[in-house]
Computed example of a mutant assay.
Amino acid sequence: MPSRHRYRKKSGKQVRSTSEKRKPSGSPTDSLPPKTPRQLVQSTIQMPSVFTFEASTPEQTAENQETEPVSEKQHCDQNQNLSQDSFSMNVSANQKDISYPSTIFNFINDASIDILTTKLSRALMLPQLQDKFAKLFESVAKDLIEGLARDIVQPLKQEIIHLRHELEMKTDDLEQYSRRNSLRISGLPESKEENTEALVMEVLRDLHPDLTASDIDRCHRVGKKNMDRNRQVIVKFVSYRNRHKVISNRRMLRQNRSSVYINEDLTKHRSKLFKLTRDLKAKHLISSTWTYDGRVYVEEQPEGVMRVILCESDLDKYR
């Protein structure tokens, strides 16, 4: 078969033209024309061998740029030689690693991420998914709030109730202490031009003969006027000793003034408790009830144990 190469004589020897000299290469693939990124990806997927990704260095780029261009005829000869050596390349393919620039695979990776991100963003914009996400968020938030209310808010609420009760009791004690020198008189006839102090002194002298007008700090009726009943009179004594002597002898009023009653000046809370204990006595659930220095007492049985009533819950055992 005649050779396709052209020869020229020089110094008695046949040598190949300089322009037709074959380009030296480290591997058969260096003489192939450059491939596009798509062709590289396709060929990479089809090859079963193991790949090693190496980034191209500036020295390799400069070396590739300094290589001489290959003529069309030389390119055909190279393709023929490559076809003849394909079998040997396939045999050695499993033993050698083929290197490709890592930038190509980074490009593919970035493109895949962009596509997945776009599809996920579009999927999240669907009304059905938005409704499901809203319901799920509402359910999780509700469970979280209920857990916080159960673990944190509820104990704090109980503590607030307890502290509030203690504060109310202490406030009631202070208010009752401020009334320790006062008494309330019920059943005194009321008129338009009455002298309240004279009426009070007339009643109190029956219980404490040595009492004088100077022992009374002040006295007046309390509440709104009512034509159907007489309003109470509150009397404040100068000293607790005179007040205590009067309240101790109040049973003497039953002899001369059976319609007049003298009681301690109680707070609103203790007045309510005393009203409840009197109702229990009327139903014969307790033996007796009374007040002393602002405290409400009950007696379950005659000559039995006396108990102090501080709140309504203390009366539950008698109901």
Rank of each mutant, 00 (worst) to 15 (best):
149 A>G: 01
151 D>V: 08
152 I>Y: 09
153 V>Y: 13
155 P>K: 05
156 L>A: 14
157 K>C: 03
158 Q>Y: 05
160 I>D: 06
161 I>E: 13
162 H>C: 03
162 H>G: 04
163 L>N: 13
165 H>D: 14
166 E>Q: 15
166 E>M: 14
167 L>G: 07
168 E>R: 08
168 E>W: 00
168 E>F: 03
170 K>H: 07
170 K>I: 05
171 T>P: 00
171 T>M: 04
172 D>S: 07
172 D>N: 15
173 D>S: 09
173 D>K: 10
173 D>H: 04
175 E>W: 00
175 E>R: 11
180 R>A: 12
181 N>A: 05
181 N>K: 15
182 S>W: 01
183 L>T: 03
183 L>C: 02
185 I>R: 04
186 S>H: 12
187 G>Q: 09
187 G>A: 08
189 P>D: 14
189 P>T: 13
191 S>V: 07
191 S>P: 00
191 S>N: 07
192 K>Y: 04
193 E>Y: 08
194 E>P: 02
194 E>W: 03
195 N>M: 03
196 T>E: 05
200 V>E: 07
202 E>V: 01
202 E>H: 13
202 E>W: 00
203 V>P: 06
203 V>H: 02
204 L>W: 12
204 L>C: 12
205 R>D: 00
210 D>V: 01
211 L>I: 15
211 L>N: 06
212 T>P: 01
212 T>C: 10
213 A>F: 07
213 A>I: 07
214 S>C: 04
214 S>M: 09
214 S>V: 05
215 D>L: 02
216 I>A: 09
217 D>V: 00
219 C>Q: 05
220 H>M: 10
222 V>C: 02
222 V>K: 07
223 G>C: 05
224 K>N: 12
224 K>R: 13
224 K>I: 01
225 K>R: 12
226 N>S: 14
226 N>Q: 10
227 M>Q: 06
228 D>R: 05
229 R>G: 00
232 Q>Y: 06
233 V>C: 15
234 I>R: 11
235 V>L: 11
236 K>I: 04
236 K>T: 15
239 S>Y: 03
239 S>L: 04
239 S>A: 05
239 S>R: 07
241 R>T: 12
244 H>N: 14
245 K>S: 06
245 K>H: 08
245 K>L: 13
245 K>C: 02
246 V>A: 07
247 I>N: 06
247 I>W: 07
249 N>V: 00
250 R>G: 01
251 R>I: 03
252 M>A: 12
253 L>N: 06
253 L>Y: 09
254 R>Y: 04
254 R>E: 12
254 R>G: 01
255 Q>T: 11
259 S>E: 14
261 Y>S: 07
261 Y>G: 00
262 I>E: 08
263 N>A: 10
264 E>N: 09
267 T>I: 06
269 H>E: 14
272 K>S: 14
274 F>W: 06
274 F>C: 03
274 F>M: 11
275 K>T: 08
275 K>Q: 12
276 L>K: 09
279 D>C: 01
281 K>C: 11
282 A>K: 15
283 K>C: 02
284 H>F: 03
285 L>M: 11
285 L>N: 12
285 L>Y: 04
286 I>N: 07
287 S>R: 03
288 S>D: 14
289 T>S: 15
290 W>A: 04
292 Y>V: 02
292 Y>K: 08
293 D>P: 00
295 R>W: 04
295 R>I: 01
296 V>N: 09
296 V>G: 06
296 V>E: 07
